[in-house]
Every structure is written in structure tokens, then in C-alpha cells.
């Protein structure tokens, strides 16, 4: 494991793990029995890991969500699907490598999957534009989702982006319109849509494929209106206060369940998804199948009505005015 990718708050744990490795090596070389000692240390490491991970600060969760070794959309697709064929291009301008998609099968069930794609090292990340999509990425995703509707396949959208790309070309080709159009169209697609934040849920760039019947987040991910760094820079003119902003923005999966923004949290293996790809993919797959089965039982009208109401009811308005709100909602219905 590359040393420089270690998370700062895991330092005591990593030290302990190194010690275990050392001892194991020593034991093998010298042929001395240290099993008891090693076992003791391993128990301690497990307990320490549990401790660290049960009390993670939002800022620390953000660090895990951004970890370069985290499984990407492609990793999950490879682990979840029996078969998958990537499909390319928006039919208008180009093929965005930062937002990919295609068709495949999960346990013999045909699905369409779209998702932001990050790279793992510099070269790959440049190709993938660090998971920051251009308008053609969003338009490709919409094309594939419409195709899914035509062939009656459920849609899975895997979100993992710091945000939509802020660049000249992106603006020229209508980044804002592309995202807006996707949200609008996704509310009307007549097949089940499941959205899962698998890493970073960066603002509008995430929401551009983020409207669905179910919205889930993996345990150590974040979903935010803006990056805590940007928030701190704007509000306090100090990007070092990003830790404070991360807390204030309520961007963790737990916070967002409480606020009614997402439906549920999908657990990750101890130490995060990057510690065990297979286990993480299994947990995701299990949830996806379970939810798709449930959603496929609904009539289309009911599916769409529920999806509409899910987003229609989001938001908080001052209590005094509440009575009035209920009234007018009825009036509008």
C-alpha cells in the first residue's frame, strides 16, 4: 500500500499495523513463536480501528471519500455486473471520460449504469478530469437513461465528483443547461432510478445525475452544496477553516438522513471501501437488488408520483407559516 496515501487520523492504527507486520516477519525469520503477542496486537488494532471509525469527524469522512484508492464507478461495475458494455458519446459533441455509462446485467437483471469516473494515478486522473464532467458527460448520461426507459431497464447512477467542471468550454456548451435538463428529465423517466453516492457528492455536478426514487450514500462519503474549502473561503475568507465548514454544512450520510435528503446509508467494510473492494461491492449489490425489486413492483404512475413528492417536500420553512403551507399545497394538488 502506498505510504503517502495514508489518512492522518489513522496514524496510530498504521503504526500498530506496521508493528504487526514487523513482528510477523521477525517471527518467520528467526523461527520464534510470537503468535500470542501478534494476536494481542491485532485485537488492539481492531479495537482501535473501530474506535477511530466510530467517531469520525465530518472532515475525516471527507478525506476517506476523497481517498485515491477508493473504488471507482468502474471498479463497482466490474464487481457487481455479470456483464457490462460501456457505451460512449452524447451524439452531439463528444465522449466525456469523467462521466461514463453503459448497459449490463446484475444477477441476470438488465440495467443501465451511469456514473462519474475518477482515475487512480495522475495520468488516469487527467484523462478522467478528476471526475469533473463537462456538459457532454451529462448529455451522454441523459441519452443512456432515455435509452434505459425505452427498453424498460432500471437505472443506477453512481455519484463521485468534486463538482461539474468549471471551464470555458463547459460554459460555452451550457454546463448549467445540461445539469438542469438532466434533473428535469430524470423526474419523468418511467423506470426505477437508484442513486448512490460512492465518494464525493459535489454540488450541482452530483445532482446532475442525482434525481431518483432512492438516493443512498455509502457510509464514508459526503454530499454537499459546495466544497467546505470553498465555503470557508467565501464565508470566512480562510480556506483553513474548511474543517469548521465541513461540520457546519451537514454533509455526511448520517446528517443527510436526518435532514431527509437521502433515504439510507450503505455500510462500508471496516476502515472504508478502499480496504476491501469485494466486500464493499457486495454490500452495494445487495442493496441495489433489494431496492430494484421493490421499485419494480410499483405501477409507473405511482413510481413517478412518489419520486415527485420525495423532492417536492424537501426543505424547511419557519414554523409560524406552516399552517399556511399545508393549505396551499392542498390547493395546488
Amino acid at each position: 500500500m502506498a505510504q503517502n496515501n495514508n489518512l492522518e487520523f489513522e496514524k496510530p492504527l498504521i503504526e500498530l499495523e506496521e508493528k504487526i507486520t514487523e513482528l510477523t516477519k521477525f517471527m518467520e525469520e528467526r523461527d520464534i513463536n510470537l503468535t500470542d503477542e501478534i494476536e494481542r496486537l491485532e485485537t488492539r488494532a481492531n479495537r482501535l480501528r473501530e474506535e477511530i471509525y466510530s467517531e469520525l469527524e465530518p472532515w475525516q469522512i471527507l478525506k476517506i471519500a476523497r481517498h485515491v484508492e477508493r473504488p471507482t464507478t468502474m471498479d463497482y461495475i466490474n464487481l457487481i455486473c455479470d456483464d457490462f458494455i460501456e457505451l460512449h458519446g452524447d451524439r452531439n459533441f463528444g465522449d466525456d471520460q469523467a462521466l461514463i455509462g453503459g448497459i449490463g446485467k446484475i444477477d441476470n437483471l438488465p440495467v443501465t449504469i451511469v456514473g462519474h469516473q475518477k482515475g487512480k494515478e495522475t495520468k488516469d486522473n487527467i484523462k478522467r478530469n478528476f471526475g469533473m464532467a463537462h456538459p457532454e458527460g451529462y448529455r451522454k448520461a441523459l441519452r443512456l437513461m432515455k435509452q434505459a426507459e425505452k427498453f424498460n431497464r432500471p437505472i443506477i447512477a453512481l455519484v463521485n465528483t468534486p463538482g461539474a467542471y468549471p471551464g470555458i468550454g463547459a460554459e460555452e456548451r451550457g454546463q448549467a443547461e445540461a445539469i438542469a435538463k438532466n434533473m428535469m428529465e430524470m423526474t419523468g423517466l418511467e423506470v426505477p432510478i437508484i442513486v448512490v453516492v460512492i465518494g464525493e457528492g459535489g454540488s450541482g455536478g452530483a445532482l446532475g445525475i442525482g434525481v431518483g426514487d432512492r438516493v443512498f450514500m455509502l457510509e464514508y462519503t459526503y454530499y454537499s452544496v459546495c466544497s467546505p474549502e470553498a465555503c470557508a473561503a467565501i464565508l470566512w475568507k480562510d480556506s483553513d477553516k474548511a474543517k469548521v465548514a465541513a461540520k457546519a454544512l451537514k454533509l455526511t450520510a448520517k446528517d443527510l438522513v436526518d435532514l431527509g435528503v437521502i433515504d439510507d446509508i450503505i455500510a462500508e467494510p471496516p476502515g472504508g471501501a478502499h480496504k476491501d473492494y469485494k466486500r464493499s461491492a457486495d454490500l452495494l449489490k445487495e442493496k441495489l437488488i433489494q431496492e430494484i425489486n421493490q421499485l419494480e413492483r410499483l405501477e409507473t404512475a405511482e413510481l413517478l408520483e412518489n419520486r415527485y413528492n420525495k423532492f417536492r417536500t424537501m426543505g424547511y420553512i419557519k414554523k409560524e407559516a406552516e399552517e399556511q403551507i399545508d393549505e396551499s399545497i392542498e390547493n395546488c394538488g
Binding site: M183, T187, Y223, V225, K250, L251, G315
Partner: peptide, 18 residues
Amino acid sequence: ARMYEGMLSLMQMAKTSA
């Protein structure tokens, strides 16, 4: 989308678009 209401603000984009 207004930062002070975090994701609840972001979700208004989906709400209005819907």
C-alpha cells in the same frame, strides 16, 4: 444554491425542475 441551508438548498434545484 444558498450555502447556509446546505443540501436542502441544493435539493431545491431538483424540486423546481421536477
